[in-house]
Design a protein around this nucleic acid. Structure first.
Length: 137
DNA sequence: GCCAACGTTGGC
DNA sequence: GCCAACGTTGGC
């Protein structure tokens, strides 16, 4: 089991949209590092959902239900998508500010590589974030 | 709205 | 194959 974090601008596609739809294809990734991580996702892996640009907080957890396959929205190039379903919202969203103020979370790519939109998260960091969000699985 | 960080493109 | 110029992302 691996853990991941994905970013989305809430006014483009927010956690609320995922809850309404019940399932979505995570498309539009056009960055090789992000693609590599996307392709590493396995069924049942858990994924933190972060709102970028507006909100700047982790709002919920989702789960991979289909491993990578070709991105139908890509007009050219070799790009991939995965399918995810919502699991639950965090009781309390965890803000980027809080994450940056937490010593054990300084190494996560969200802090270190601000432009990366799909990234792995260590289990310990994942659990710490759930704890900060007052959420259990 | 600005700008830093990073990726991509294209001339040489 | 280097690197300057440009584009994009995303925090501030």
């Amino acid at each position: 089991m691996n853990y991941w974090l994905v970013k989305s601008e809430p006014y483009e596609y927010g956690y609320h949209d995922l809850e309404e739809e019940g399932r979505t294809m995570w498309d539009g990734i056009r960055n090789y590092a992000a693609r590599k991580h996307l392709r590493g996702m396995k069924v049942d892996d858990l994924v933190l959902f972060y709102h970028s640009r507006k909100g700047l907080e982790i709002v919920g957890i989702c789960k991979v239900v289909k491993e990578f396959y070709p991105d139908p929205t890509a007009e050219k190039g070799d790009w991939s998508v995965v399918d995810v379903v919502p699991v639950k919202r965090l009781t309390k969203p965890v803000t980027l500010q809080e994450i940056k103020a937490t010593p054990e979370l300084q190494e996560i790519p969200l802090v270190r590589i601000s432009r990366l939109s799909v990234m792995p998260i260590e289990e310990s960091a994942f659990l710490r974030i759930l704890e900060m969000g007052e959420t259990s699985l």
